[in-house]
Design a protein around this nucleic acid. Structure first.
Lengths: 239, 239
DNA sequence: CAGTGGTCTAGACCACCAG
DNA sequence: TGGTGGTCTAGACCACTGG
């Protein structure tokens, strides 16, 4: 067992047995180093591991604190009608910020995902969505240009699915891929994540009734203050 | 911009511009240190960050390699009929290993999740599931004892949902919570994960037609060789 | 101002792997 | 055996927070 393992175990035990209380400051790195007779770098490794596992967080110049993971708001993912609708019922204020919107030709990867050839133009859309003034999700959408009515861009920006409905594009199938990933610097900055902690990533492919792919979206969810649920109401034998 | 940022950028550029090929060995930590005029620990930090973001992997005594994330097998999560069914159609061999099975009284947290009082007995079930001899998911299930027919434990172990069906427990609703997390040592060892990389975590609550909660399950999915998809076939306005 | 965490150094010893 | 990554050390300087 390594030295940093012992320090991790010590801190974890203190959290689980309420020696440290939620949101309380723990010993400084120097104090831990002295207490365990190790170097400061070894303490830092132990602390960093627990930060990444959501037990602790650090504030530069102040100290290391026990994280409180209770009382997270719930966001429901299963309403394709859009972010705004999801949040209204929770009495949360939702704001969508369009960071980037441009026409492009698709990369190899994207033309494959959208099942179109590389000469067909697409639209690249990058949005940052806030709930109660906090950044919650970065959504990066690739959509064939032919599906975008430029006279109704604002509606499209706010909710792709309301827009799709009103333009009479019928989506017959959604393919979702779920992942846990560590975000790159861009996503970290947008979501205002200071530490090196995982986010929940969802890749969405929407398929129309005629088999064409309406959109491909990558979404990065900030797990700091929200949790992400889906409710499936079905007879079990229809799954 | 920190020194380790520059080394990260250098490595990332080499990957993206195919200077490093997939599965190829990159410079050793000592070589990078010399090339950038920094200490070895600084190189290690840059490499560790890219390992955590799935660009690299390390083998002790050998070196650091570029990871290939193509060609992952697909596992479908939306068939509650069970792991075995999901994998058959992909021509993958599925094995379930029961690591632990015991009666318990629920903790505060679990009695809340199952909506039962703390005097009601539950069953704790910990399973490790393999596909093609590789560990893919750890499932930890909490289920009220009253729902477990001890004469049919083997069927129950293999597929809770086939079992539920055959015992006439009708599930009306599934509540799923999605997360990205860094696994603790136990999960890492079971899934044979060497590096400090995120897994995909799914928490499942199954609700019966009479409102009782049939089970609460935490599942940790190894993203190394598989990806996890769900297909929703619906009219968009029924979401 | 003293204390905190963030970065970085130039070493050290170890276990592991290959030839 | 020489090279690799894994752990650890005993320093250093910095930027930031609070009193």
């Amino acid at each position: 067992m390594m030295k940093f393992d012992k320090i991790e175990e010590y801190i974890l035990n203190n959290i689980k047995s309420d020696v440290y209380l939620s949101e309380e400051k723990i010993e400084s790195e120097n104090e831990l180093a002295k207490k365990f007779g190790v170097s400061r770098m070894t303490c830092r490794k132990a602390i960093e591991n627990l930060v990444q596992r959501n037990y602790l967080y650090k504030i530069k110049g102040k100290g290391t604190y026990v994280k409180n993971n209770e009382n997270k708001h719930i966001i429901y993912l299963n309403e394709a009608i859009g972010f705004s609708e999801r949040t209204k019922r929770e009495n949360l204020s939702a704001v969508t910020n369009v960071l980037q919107y441009e026409e492009r030709f698709p990369s190899d990867q994207i033309s494959k995902k959208l099942n179109i050839n590389k000469e067909e133009r697409i639209v690249y859309l990058k949005r940052l969505r806030f709930i109660n003034e906090e950044p919650v999700v970065v959504e990066i959408t690739y959509i064939p240009k032919k599906f975008v009515n430029e006279k109704r861009l604002n509606e499209f920006f706010e909710s792709k699915y309301n827009y799709a409905l009103s333009e009479n594009y019928k989506i017959k199938e959604m393919q979702k891929e779920y992942m846990g990933v560590l975000p790159n610097r861009d996503i970290k900055e947008l979501l205002n994540i200071k530490e090196n902690i995982p986010v929940f990533k969802l890749e969405n492919t929407a398929i129309l009734e005629n088999g064409e792919i309406f959109e491909y979206t990558k979404a990065f969810y900030n797990q700091e203050k929200y949790k992400f649920l889906e409710i499936l109401k079905k007879d079990i034998d229809k799954y």
